[in-house]
Design a protein around this nucleic acid. Structure first.
Length: 161
DNA sequence: CGAGTTTGACCAGCGC
DNA sequence: GCGCTGGTCAAACTCG
């Protein structure tokens, strides 16, 4: 779930829209995207929350078999640097292990992001690729939307103290 | 001209 | 079998 005005979120990959449908129980249409990379079969669905129109729900299906174009581009601009950052507070997600997420929900993972971060899948992959150095960077990054994140999906994070 | 979007048609799965 | 719904296809279109 992502708080965003726009449907098309920049997550570092290039997507081609292949369909749009009006869905039941929601006044907003759902959009279907495929990764533009030939080998990559990752799909995502994007729909707007019925309760909060400023929230878009992005459902990823599959895993990218390639690096993000933003990563390959290697720029330090909007896409390069920030998009390579690991997901917010991954290590502190109470009882929520990203690796576990990948293992248990390999096919479809509805993930929680802000506009400055990736979904957990991609973020975790980037996290793995970048290794130790990114952890350092990770700790220095600040995510002002994190509190907001909790507001959006408090039930998503298990084991509230 | 190529890549991406739009949109109606088509298809499969499911409940009745 | 029929209707509904979600997902996909593909032709037409737009844009850089």
């Amino acid at each position: 779930m992502t708080k965003s005005e726009v449907d098309q979120l920049e997550d570092g990959y290039r997507w081609r829209k292949y369909g749009q449908k009006a869905v039941k129980n929601s006044p907003y249409p759902r959009s279907y995207y495929r990764c533009t990379s030939q080998k990559c079969t990752v799909k995502k669905r994007v729909e707007r929350s019925f309760q909060d129109p400023t929230v878009v729900i992005t459902t990823y299906e599959g895993q990218h078999t390639h690096q993000s174009p933003a990563t390959l581009r290697g720029n330090t601009g909007l896409l390069g640097h920030s998009m390579m950052a690991p997901p917010p507070r991954l290590s502190t997600m109470r009882g929520f292990n990203a690796a576990e997420l990948l293992m248990q929900v390999p096919i479809t993972a509805t993930t929680t992001t802000t506009t400055t971060t990736n979904n957990v899948n991609q973020g975790f992959q980037g996290y793995m690729n970048l290794g130790q150095t990114s952890l350092h960077e990770h700790q220095q990054l600040h995510f002002p939307d994190y509190g907001l994140l909790q507001d959006i999906v408090p039930s998503f994070l298990p084991n509230h103290p």
